[in-house]
Nucleic acid binder design. Sequence first.
DNA 1: CTGTTAGCGCTTTCAC
DNA 2: GTGAAAGCGCTAACAG
Lengths: 363, 363
Amino acid sequence: MTVTLADVAARARVSPATVSRVLNGNYPVAAATRDRVLRAVDELDYVLNGPASSLAAATSDLVGILVNDIADPFFGIMAGAAQSEIGGQDPGGGAGPGRAGSQKLAVVCNTGGSPERELTYLTLLQRQRAAAVILTGGALEDPDHSAAMTAKLGRLVEAGTRVVLCGRPPLPEGEAAIAALAFDNRGGGRRLTEHLLALGHRTIGYVAGPLERTTTRHRLEGHRDALRAAGVPGADDGSGRGPLTLHGPYTRRSGYEATLELLRREPGLTALVAANDTVALGACAAVRDQGLRIPQDVSVAGFDDLPFSVDAVPALTTVRLPLQEAGARAGRLAMGTEAPPPGGIATIAAELMARASTAPPRS
Amino acid sequence: MTVTLADVAARARVSPATVSRVLNGNYPVAAATRDRVLRAVDELDYVLNGPASSLAAATSDLVGILVNDIADPFFGIMAGAAQSEIGGQDPGGGAGPGRAGSQKLAVVCNTGGSPERELTYLTLLQRQRAAAVILTGGALEDPDHSAAMTAKLGRLVEAGTRVVLCGRPPLPEGEAAIAALAFDNRGGGRRLTEHLLALGHRTIGYVAGPLERTTTRHRLEGHRDALRAAGVPGADDGSGRGPLTLHGPYTRRSGYEATLELLRREPGLTALVAANDTVALGACAAVRDQGLRIPQDVSVAGFDDLPFSVDAVPALTTVRLPLQEAGARAGRLAMGTEAPPPGGIATIAAELMARASTAPPRS
DNA sequence: CTGTTAGCGCTTTCAC
DNA sequence: GTGAAAGCGCTAACAG
């Protein structure tokens, strides 16, 4: 029923091996022969059988990109940039319908933040003998899950799959073969709070991300570092959860509700730091709904500098993460077209974007 | 080196065939045998070889979801919902590390709006013998590309791949086997403009999406329909491009620049309709930068009702599309767990969300 | 530069 | 309920 490589070979009056060589373009073939083969491919509308080819070659052209939330532009931007580097080039050499050169198939897999699904996707990709896997965004810090991840990634590496971490800290046990592009969440968090402190704020609420996520912890630590350095007390009770810190998912709703609660607990609050820009938007809405003005009554800051943040009213003070660049670099690392950073680890700087949503406190 | 099914069979003292049957669970196997096999799988940390299995079975468990822009939540929301339906269930039966039941691998492919990449991805998925393909968002209306798409999708269907359109109108030549979930962009566009007309606006600018996209055309047609029905002239010069209509990509920047231009051309503008919410945000920024107030001086409206729209200041009037529901339904159609709509085509309603960014004109 | 020959690891009749 | 055997369609040595 379906056309096979043998059919093409017959029509082009060459051996299957030759057709394979033409298609893979990784072997010298006479121009005349190649043309004949290519013509046969087009005439028969032949499409390579991926599974068969992967089986024989023991590798596939699948590259998996794991994201925690595909509906969040934070991940979409990184994934899109990575995908462009991987599968974005023009199909090589004026390809006809049947061919697609040595194209890799970059695909994004949405874990929804679930550790089980993360592992499941890795198994599925391992099953497909994926050429590479990119893990984006913060990791869960649960020891069991960490161990399972380390083991699974180790097996992938062993099987020849390239593994790249993008916006995620290196594995605890530091598999050397795994390149990591880590965001400086801690430094960014610190600079953001320093900015607030410099403006004169002393009572600062913090709407943090979900517990046990590296991203959450690092941003929070940066915040606490700044507070401590300035000798501002009260934000840390030693448990890592100050009375002015509330945890929740990376959603607008979480920002809204946590802000209401924080404002209730501490009416003297003059500034609010959110886990990210989306949460900050919710926080802004809550502040406003309480009849307070931003930034006159309460300053609000986010993190990530997603595209919509500059359009918030007032424009959101935040910390810019070069998501596009990081994603692209991860894509190149996955393709092997860029050398891994020294030590396998690169820290990517986070830049403070001071805008209109923060100002000196009222009094 | 890597563990194969034969290794498992040897360890469990059964034949490879039996292991295969246990793993696929689609055949009677004695409980004792099954346990022995499962134990061997866990002990050896066996992972099925996807390509080999796909080759032998002539199908794979890959499901492709094509999106125009993965960084746009419009697509992220649909893709995430679809992916949940497809690969989101718990791995069947307390699966150990090696197994992943009959899990499908739902993957999203970012075309970036490029017709070539769209075709390339379809070829790549065809190559992998994908179980299903979901195409989301508006289609390009170029006749050549349409023909190529129709041909390629026809071939996919022929090869047993289920094809679902989500938020995309049915193919011109209407392949019966392709289910289509189409948004009522036209009706939504019409109701939005009717709302503006009812408020008293007569000079309405329109920042449209890219040319030759079904989504762009349908929304614009709805707008024109409403104008025509109300007897408002000037917005249509018969070419389908009124002087108050400007086309551009679905970006904030496009909204910003087009709005500046529109305001320059027609200072008497009292309302502005944008291609979508993202564009509307850019439009708002431009209006504001011109020293005009929203909605007192100029009303602004978007389309899609993305999550951030309600947080815009003022909250954005827009048209809500049930992206989540549509994506989930597309996922179920792709899995075959939901019956296709009668005739293979369902039109999904678009609901007007009148909010604070629109109000009666000044004078 | 091209053809021949073995498999790659799994599924699936067909027997038992 | 289980085993044996025959491919699935391609790639990759080897020859020539």
